Simulated assay, not measured.
Amino acid sequence: MEEEFLVVDLESRRLTPLAQAMLDRLPGEGFAAELQRSVVETNSTPLEDLGDVRAELVRLRGALVSAGEPLGVGVIASGTTPLTGVDGYTISPGERYRYLSDEYRFLAQEQLICGAQVHVEIDDRDVAVLAAQRAEAWLPPLLALSASSPYWENDDTGYASSRTLAWQRWPTAGSLGPFADAAQYDRTAEDLVASGVIEDQGMVYFDIRLSAHVPTVEMRICDSCPLVDDVVLLAGLFRALFTRESEAVERGEPPRGEQRPALLRAANWRAARSGLEGDLLSPLTSRPSSAPQLITWLLDDLRPTLEELGDWELVSELADEALRRGSSASRQRGARAVNGRPEDAVDLLLAETRKP
C-alpha cells in the first residue's frame, strides 16, 4: 500500500512545505518525499491479511502525526485540500523533481493531489497484463468509494474527485491497453521513454500498471482516503478483483467487463463527478445505476473470490459502512456548509486521518 498525505499548518489549516522537516524526524524506511514539499508518502510492507494491512497503515499514519505535532503541522489523507495557501506550491529539491518542474511546468506546479495505490503480487507478467486490462472496467466503483477531492484552489469544483481530472492531464495517465502480452506492454513503456515524453518507466502512469521492478500490479486510480477503513476496503476489493480476473485468464475465459476505451473513460469521469452520491456506469452494460446499488452488486459478484481469500466478512462490513456514511467529498461539503468555513472541512480531514 502507498498513501500520499497533504501537510497542513495546524493553526491556519493551509498547506505548508514542511514535509521534509517531518521526514527528518522519521525512520527512512516506509516514508518518502514527493514532488511538492507539502506532500509526504508512506509505503507499507507486503502483507497478506487485511487486518495486518490495517494495523500497518494505522502505524504509519500514527508516526506521521507524531512527527508533525512538534512542528505545528498535521497530515490529511485526501485527493486535494479544501484550503490551499501559496506556501503549498513549493517543489521538493532533487534532480528528478527539477526535471519534472522544468519539463511539465504547470502540471508539476499544480501537482497538489494525493492518491492511494494498491499493489498485488503476481509472478506471471503475461497473465498480469491480460488480467489488468480485464480489471479496468471494474475500477470506477473503487474510484467512487475513494472520492475525497471536491475542492480545487479553495473552490468547490462540482466533482467528487477533482484529483482525477487533474491527474488525467499527464501524458501517460489513463487506460493501459490494449496489449496482447507483457512483451508488448514492455515495448510500449520503452518506446514512451525513447520518445522523450517521459524520463523513465516510473512515469508510466496508467490507472493500473505492471511494476517495472517488483512482481506486482498496481492500482492507481483512487484518491487518498481520510478513513483508514476505506483504504483497507479498496485493498480487499482490488485483490479480489485481480485474483478473479487472473484466474479467468488462466482458464481461458473471455472478458466480462467493458473494454472499449471511450466507455472506460466515460465510466471514470462519471465516478469522479458523482462519487457515492450519484449514478455510476455498470462495468457490464455501461448503463447508469445508483452508486449504492452498483457497489452492492459488485460485492455480490466478487463474493466467491472474497470468500476464497477469507475476506468476505470484513470487506462486506466495510463496504456497508462506506455506503452508509457517503463519500469523503460529501462529508467535506457538509462540514464546510455549517458555517461556510473551509477550515472546518480541513479539521474534519485532520480528525478522520488520525482516527485509528
Rank of each mutant, 00 (worst) to 15 (best):
S195N: 01
R336V: 00
T305I: 08
I295M: 10
E153S: 06
L299E: 01
G174L: 02
V232T: 05
D279A: 05
V86T: 10
L18Y: 11
G257K: 09
A33T: 09
S161P: 02
A173C: 05
R209N: 07
Q111R: 01
R354W: 03
A132C: 05
D49T: 13
L112M: 14
E48I: 08
Q117H: 15
P178Q: 12
C222F: 03
D320H: 02
T42D: 06
A235C: 05
T90D: 03
G334L: 15
Y205R: 15
G158Q: 13
E247P: 02
W312G: 08
L143R: 08
L306F: 05
E253V: 00
V232I: 14
S161C: 04
L10K: 02
A108F: 06
F242G: 03
A144P: 05
D207V: 01
Y89Q: 15
T353G: 07
E4K: 13
L142N: 10
S328W: 11
P283Y: 02
R125G: 13
I76N: 10
I122W: 06
M22G: 03
R134S: 06
Y185F: 09
S175A: 15
A345E: 06
A272R: 00
P93I: 15
D344W: 00
A147H: 07
S195W: 12
Y205W: 05
A67C: 08
L294A: 12
T157Q: 03
S282Y: 12
V232P: 02
A33F: 14
S12W: 13
E308S: 14
W152N: 03
G326V: 01
T16D: 07
R325C: 12
D311L: 09
Q259W: 09
A180T: 13
S38L: 13
A128M: 08
V53I: 12
A240G: 09
Y89W: 07
P215T: 04
Q201N: 10
D200F: 04
T16I: 05
L107G: 04
G158P: 09
T164C: 14
A182D: 08
R324L: 14
A33K: 09
L112G: 09
L281A: 13
A19V: 07
A21P: 00
L83D: 00
D102V: 09
S328G: 09
S211A: 06
I122F: 14
A351K: 10
S38Q: 04
Y97G: 13
P226M: 08
Q201W: 01
A267C: 10
V228S: 03
G326Q: 04
R209V: 08
I221E: 01
G236N: 14
A183I: 08
R265W: 07
I221H: 06
A173F: 11
G62M: 10
V232D: 02
N339F: 04
L276K: 06
V214D: 09
Y97M: 03
R61D: 04
D347Y: 00
R59D: 15
E110Q: 02
L107Q: 06
